[in-house]
């Protein structure tokens, strides 16, 4: 048999390490969507004192390089401090795997981004963000780009479901162009809530739907 993947990639693909979910994790993130073809969820637990990643797990809806990269970065991240783990990049993950096909770069980058976002999520939730920039409409928009529109599999911003964003005195108001009774409205609402409420200076998230 001949594969575009080397033995080590195949080994991680067949027997991925650290797979699954952590219940009530200290930090978590979802990157990608079925529309990009790949989706990764990363969960971390962090030791409060040493700031080391004590446990990390991932889930993958993706191709072989996505699964293998998820597996390798969880191995690399375990036991590292948050600052060390943040520095893990795609090149490192790819090298550790003995190389990935270039066309598959975007599938594997996703897992790396997932880890970084999970760390960011932890830092935000625990008041550890060092550069505390005030939240702006642009920052909210860029976060909404990571919320999926289940109707198309693409993000809310790209599919023009975000009608309006307002940031004022710690309150973020978002208007979603869907009727409140729509079957996907509750899922979208809770996903927006999760992505925005962790911003350090946000006290309240108001999500409104159109009729």
């Amino acid at each position: 048999m001949k594969f575009p993947y080397n033995e080590k990639v195949l080994e991680h693909f067949r027997h991925p390490r650290n797979v699954g979910k952590i219940e009530n994790p200290d930090g978590k993130a979802v990157e990608g969507s079925p529309a990009c073809g790949d989706m990764v969820a990363v969960y971390i637990n962090v030791d409060k004192d040493s700031k080391k990643i004590s446990d990390v797990k991932f889930e993958s809806y993706g191709c072989a390089s996505n699964i293998a990269t998820g597996s390798i970065i969880t191995e690399l991240a375990k036991g590292k401090t948050l600052d060390e783990a943040k520095k893990i990049n795609w090149k490192q993950a790819s090298d550790e795997l003995g190389g990935l096909p270039p066309i598959k770069a975007h599938c594997s980058v996703l897992a790396v981004e997932g880890l970084r976002s999970a760390i960011q999520n932890y830092e935000e939730r625990h008041g550890l963000v060092k550069e505390q920039k005030p939240t702006t409409v642009e920052i909210v928009q860029s976060r909404l780009k990571k919320v999926m529109n289940p109707l198309s599999g693409l993000d809310l911003v790209r599919t023009k479901l975000v009608k309006d964003v307002e940031v004022k005195d710690g309150t973020v108001r978002i208007v979603v162009d869907l009727p409140e009774g729509h079957q996907f409205a509750p899922a979208i609402k809770s996903e927006i809530q999760e992505k925005i409420e962790t911003l350090w200076d946000v006290r309240k998230v108001v999500i409104e739907f159109t009729d």
């Binding site: 048999m1 195949l10 191709c63 598959k104």
Partner: peptide
Amino acid sequence: IEGESITLHLDLRGFAVSTGSACFSRSL
């Protein structure tokens, strides 16, 4: 679940099939 992963697992077990997944196609 995603088709390229299914296809690859099947290939590792000795079955050849194809998929409509973007990951499988050269054009993505």
